[in-house]
């Protein structure tokens, strides 16, 4: 399915994500890594005690779409597959892998690369590559 190439909006949206990361660093000294923030709220308990602030950040994230609809009067454009078993599998892999690999697109891809962390650059190249292969297999080999 085609989607419209949106260089300007994407650049602007990226800038907002960056502003969020800088704000979180300036206020709490924390990396805006969503997998890290989420996993710290989940069991089993760990010694990291940033829980209340993490929860508030996630509430902000959850409020974005409702606020968007209030301002724009319509829901953002979105196409979610209705292949539920596939999405269930994808969720497990994303959840397990991001915690195992210490980060996801935000923590490694945005914050880590901005700090020129070799680990994050390597992680980003790795998940981009396997993501590319996954889409290749899904769309061009097995064609769902």
């Amino acid at each position: 399915m085609e989607t419209e190439f949106t260089p300007l909006l994407s650049l602007l949206g990226g800038g907002l994500i960056g502003a969020s990361a800088v704000l979180l660093m300036a206020t709490h000294g924390r990396i805006a890594g969503i997998s890290g923030i989420l996993s710290r709220m989940l069991p089993p308990a760990s010694k990291d005690q940033s829980l209340p602030q993490g929860l508030i950040f996630i509430i902000g994230l959850l409020l974005a779409a409702p606020l968007w609809i209030t301002i724009n009067g319509q829901a953002p454009l979105q196409t979610v597959s209705n292949n539920l078993p596939l999405l269930a599998l994808a969720g497990v892999l994303v959840g397990f892998g991001s915690v195992w690999g210490n980060g996801c697109t935000s923590g490694h891809g945005v914050c880590g690369i901005s700090r020129l962390s070799s680990r994050s650059i390597f992680a980003t190249l790795t998940f981009m590559s396997t993501g590319f292969v996954a889409v290749l297999l899904l769309r061009h080999v097995f064609e769902s």
């Binding site: 999405l87 969720g91 994303v94 690999g101 396997t130 996954a134």
Partner: peptide
């Protein structure tokens, strides 16, 4: 661990089109 985790994450990201954020 970094490589394995990122590789697994990438597969899920590609299959679902979603990452955590």
């Amino acid at each position: 661990r970094l490589i394995t985790g990122s590789a697994i994450f990438g597969v899920g990201w590609g299959l679902g089109g979603f990452c955590p954020g």
